[in-house]
Design a binder for these strands. Sequence first.
DNA 1: GCAGAGTTACTCGGATAGTTCTTGTCCGAGTGTGTTCGG
DNA 2: CCGAACACACTCGGACAAGAACTATCCGAGTAACTCTGC
Lengths: 165, 165
Amino acid sequence: MIQDMRMSEGVEWALHTCLNLAWVERDRAVPTSTLAAFYELPPAYLNKQLQALVRAGILASTPGPRGGFRLARAPEEITVLDVVVAIEGPQEAFECAEILRRGPGGAPGVDYRKICVISQFMRQAELNWRRELAGRTLADLKATVEERFPAVPGEVRHGLTGTRT
Amino acid sequence: MIQDMRMSEGVEWALHTCLNLAWVERDRAVPTSTLAAFYELPPAYLNKQLQALVRAGILASTPGPRGGFRLARAPEEITVLDVVVAIEGPQEAFECAEILRRGPGGAPGVDYRKICVISQFMRQAELNWRRELAGRTLADLKATVEERFPAVPGEVRHGLTGTRT
DNA sequence: GCAGAGTTACTCGGATAGTTCTTGTCCGAGTGTGTTCGG
DNA sequence: CCGAACACACTCGGACAAGAACTATCCGAGTAACTCTGC
């Protein structure tokens, strides 16, 4: 064993933060400091992750007083994969380096990512994983939490906006 | 976007090398230098990966002249997941840091990896991925390659042992 | 009382260090082989 | 000619650097609200 394959910790932060924002009124912006305080996260670093979500079109940002972040789309239109890709990047975990090209019988014009049996299998497995993540939206997660933990939405709204509504 | 989630390049090397060893007689050991030369890989670094496979019980090593590596088990008994875990480690890509514990209503005695809806979903998706990898063995890959590229086994045996059998 | 300009405070955004992990390399310990010497 | 001891060469294995990525932080640009002043 050597080590990793770990995905960035920011993915967890981003998912929870986006889900929390789904419980706040759509037009209300929540600043980084508030979002970070909710889970005692380092504000500046969380801000960095949120910037990535803005670039991906998942969040919208507003500067100045009463500014902050809010969902750019409806929760039904934001999948878990969207958030993961926004933070981790679009590239796959198993990236075929086409080492077969260096082996005997290797040809320059061949795409070994499509020929190589190992590459094919790994790609397929990862594609299924992505498909599963793309099939679940923030709205789904939101509904599940509301069903299992009815108190959570109120707590989130209170922690993020100060209102108890 | 920030970057990674990439898994180690050694996984590809390990998978190809193990598959190649499946075409060599079980009692014949192939040294690192030969295995590395087959794909023009850095020998010392490949050796490092092979050591991990030995620790995982996938390969067996023999020192001294005529020494090297060979499969420790039959190809039918080695899954793709075995190799991936041997190189990357058993830990999951999405490791829940249980940030809910720091939030409102967080309790010390609760296992948030099991409670958190996000963690549950991510774990399930990754579990399916692992299940898929565990369902494919080296023997399966070997058979597929032999069917699609009948010339490969001979080339591999020639490159690794010098015999053309 | 009202409108407008100026000031203030707050927010995001990108640029900037520290730490961990991955990648890459090297040399020593151990082993089997080939050789040499003696019977 | 045969057997055993010796020296040698080859292999793995872990210890040792270099580079990249993740983690973490700070300060500047921009904006909206608030205040104060003049009408």
